[in-house]
Design a protein around this nucleic acid. Structure first.
Lengths: 208, 208, 208, 208
DNA sequence: TATGAATGAGAGTTCATTCAT
DNA sequence: GATGAATGAACTCTCATTCAT
């Protein structure tokens, strides 16, 4: 992002950190938090165990770093997607499309993300989840407002509570992402966001 | 259910097994697989640890038993719900209603079920999930056939691939179950299945 | 002590506990708390590490058990010694003699005891020491009262504050115990307690 | 001390060494050998860890340096105190007074010193102690000779073996130093050395 | 047959020490 | 010469599993 104002040392450090995180994401994603040891992560990342602990003060901190950093990226990207476009329907299309893109670019991390936002994540430590869920809730609220605005502007029918509609749209896009995740070739995430929106909106949009 | 030919001994054994499973479900559901020890389960169920191992050959086997047996009950119940009613729309209504009922009666187990079918089931051992997913897939296929039939009978608009519609309906009901799970009073699971079906079907059903 | 009302199981357990404590005392005494690992203790006591942790919930608990249990025995024995005899000088003689006997019977443990009551024990955990030091202080107070009584009865000269005299007597007996500890044959702890008492009391006792 | 032939470089080095030692003394004294890391020492002394290792080949060497150098100062000071004064009683008074002064000026170091000469020095490595104990033994011998001379000159009564008297005097002054250490205001180390000497000598000195 | 004491592999974490820069 | 990032042996502690009683 920014200029190149980091010293060689700092750049090197950042790269090491990224390497460790990348390995950890892969392992956690494939095996689950409790089935991955710090030694395993260190080994796969080709660092000594002590080095790993120089970067992350403990296992939970490493996990927390993954989740919060990745969630930040997702949430920011999605928030921005929801702000672009004038028409409500365009914002929704953006959301579906961008969500697909960003998740498909981060396959490994989404399992962890899903686990934290939806699944039975047994709060590796209570509170971790809280922050993320609040961000997630923020997105849903944003979506809900878009639905509400659309309804008020008579663009959408008032077929359900806007908050429910928001959750539903998110849920539907997740469904397609799951499908794709399990068999990417057989079930590609739709290029056209209307494929997903139609399921929700075919009866939603007020025909002009 | 089956005949009545179980000896007193066998009945006693079965009851012990049920007791163990019930305790394990509660513990796993509240704490997660890795945060529950075999000792804890034995203790809470008031059996010796050795006795627990007489019934389940190891921790994974115990977990697998819970998941598969409970999933069987769910799937059977849901399958039956999909067979009742003549009109396709009634079958769907049944599904949404029965699913809500059965899940709300088994709060503890659904977290585990969700974890296995969707989110962060890190395959306690690969293959566990497979069996359940196949059952789950069966339900979805059944649902898909109902949608397809409805479309062919011109009861439903062909707004999307029937398989996608099936997944979507299931996903929407899950969404409402999650909501209820997190705040039962604030977000009751709708009494009227149309609340959920409308989101999907408002534009789906062909107005007569 | 009491009858034999312990079951075979309980007796066995007690014996195991004693074995573990005995090994731990020896190791801690010779090497210091931080230079002895739980594995080492388990190994020397010929138990699995897990068994050791069945008896003591952690390393500190094991150490605490040693110190408090042994200190209890010492303090009780010394307290009783101070209560026997009519004349103050006899009580002091008793103290010096019994202290020598009890310490010489528990060579290993006294290093640990000294470390906790006097030496620079860096409070394996603050508070451990507190309890023991209070017991120790109790002994000193008892001694001080004896000196005070002796002075009031004109048996002793008032050559110093009774509390200081109490500490001094204790300190002098420690000095002889140290000497004996380092070279038992060359520096036997005096059979005759007056050898020690004279250093303090030659000018203390009022000649009749 | 020696000539003045140290180069600026050498003087600088010496000062750095002193700084490191001073920090280490404080930390070891407050926390104990095993609860202080080399990193902590380096950090507090504001040197790089590598620099610390340039001055001391390992942690033990650093500790050994503290103990031996400080002990040297103490022993030299005490030895000189024992050489001043004509009368034996004055030498003893000097000893008690100077020992109090030097210890009270070096509070931090005396805990370590006590640990090494008496209590729970668990031979950070056997042999460390040896050197110090020999020095200490030297002091005690010197004291013993003073007692012996006093006895021969009929200044002191022969109430006990001179060596025992020497140890006893040292022990008594330690007792008062402990007291002061734990509660400086409540238990000041006596200004008048006779407060301590009387406990030992009230009956020792032959009244003229 | 049911029991639960005993086991020990393996987890997370620390820190003395080294050595390339 | 000074630095401090990197190392990995060793520590404390847990818990799934076994087997003699």
């Amino acid at each position: 992002m920014g200029g190149g104002k980091l010293s060689r040392r700092e750049r090197e450090k950042l790269r090491q950190r990224q390497d460790m995180l990348a390995v950890a994401i892969e392992l956690f994603s494939n095996n689950g938090y409790h089935n991955v040891s710090m030694h395993k992560i260190a080994q796969e990342a080709e660092f000594a165990i002590g080095t790993l602990y120089k970067f992350f003060k403990n296992k939970e901190d490493l996990y927390r770093s993954i989740i919060t950093e990745q969630a930040d990226i997702f949430h920011e990207t999605l928030t921005r997607a929801l702000e672009e476009g004038n028409e409500e329907i365009d914002k929704l299309r953006n959301y579906v499309q961008v969500k697909g893109a960003v998740f498909m670019d981060n396959v490994s991390v989404i399992r962890l993300y899903f686990a934290e936002t939806r699944g039975a994540s047994f709060n590796i430590k209570a509170g971790l989840t809280k922050e993320i869920r609040e961000d997630y809730e923020g997105i849903i609220q944003q979506l809900a407002q878009i639905f509400e605005a659309g309804i008020q502007k008579k663009r959408f029918q008032h077929i359900a509570d806007p908050y429910h509609l928001a959750l539903s749209l998110d849920s539907l896009s997740n469904t397609f992402l799951y499908l794709w995740l399990e068999a990417p070739k057989q079930h590609p995430y739709p290029d056209d966001p209307d494929t997903i929106l139609n399921i929700l909106c075919k009866g939603l949009v007020v025909e002009p």
